[in-house]
Amino acid sequence: MSTAETPREARRDTAQYGVCGFLAVVGALVIVDAARIQHIANSNDPIGPKPVPIVLGVLLLVVAVLYAVDVARGGTGEAEEGEDVDVTSAIDWRTVLLLIAAFVVNLVLIDPLGWVISGTLLFWGSAFALGSRHHIRNVFIAVALSLITFYAFAIGLGVNLPAGVLQGIL
């Protein structure tokens, strides 16, 4: 990627210690989980299912420490760039949280209400979160997308998408 330095990176990125912490927690979790596995070894499988997770857990702990050392020495990861990404701006948490909310609504409602309704809410909610304010137009687009995907995939191609409460109507 590009080697351009943004002025923001001149400051210490201490949030990186959070990544180290996360890696350490995952490592510990993997080891604890592996410790619970009963040791079954036979001639077909001399080492059993235990050693690999233990090795991975230990490596995660080691990497967490090395990562922390790298951060302490001033190491930073370069945030990913892209066509629509402006890395110099601060993270817009409101948008991210609203997107997650739209996502969760779909996840909760997809089985009881069906894809057409939950998908509509998902698209409309995501577009809203991303700053689109054409509410009525967005409803039409969302409904159209959900219906088209439902008919094309669930009915046309036999893909698993629930009809939910609209069973029999669609």
């Binding site: 629509d84 997107l99 739209a102 996502f103 779909n106 996840l107 909760v108 997809i110 089985d111 894809w115 998908g119 998902l122 698209f123 995501s126 577009a127 809203f128 979160a129 991303l130 700053g131 689109s132 687009i141 997308l145 995907t149 995939f153 893909v159 698993n160 998408l161 629930p162």
Partner: peptide, 23 residues
């Protein structure tokens, strides 16, 4: 852009659900 990224999330959710049909 709102439609583009909303669309990505929409199709991603559909594709992931369709694998095993479980929320």
């Amino acid at each position: 852009r709102p439609y583009l990224y909303a669309g990505i999330i929409f199709f991603a959710s559909m594709g992931a659900y369709a694998v095993n049909a479980q929320p």
